[in-house]
Amino acid sequence: MTLAPGSAVRVRLDWPETRGPVHIRTPWYLRGARGTVVRHLGDFPNPEDLAFARPAERRALYHVLFDQDAIWREDHPGDELLVELYEHWLEPA
């Protein structure tokens, strides 16, 4: 999967931490949130496997932009959150 800049995505609404020991780089506050891909940052060994010394496949890492107000209701429309997320946490929106 390669996501082009501008692609609309949704962060998977999933909570692997409820199923056993995990190491996750996807902040909980973004689970289920809708965002927009800014760019592909590169491919990196999956930290979810690296943390447990398992063989780690390289996964695409994206910079994804979110509307700050939709997530935290800061009451300042236009503010943004920019976060690095791995491809297996993103689905088309």
Partner: peptide, 12 residues
Amino acid sequence: VKLRVVDSTADY
């Protein structure tokens, strides 16, 4: 001015 919070979560 737009505020952009960059959450440094991974390899960068």
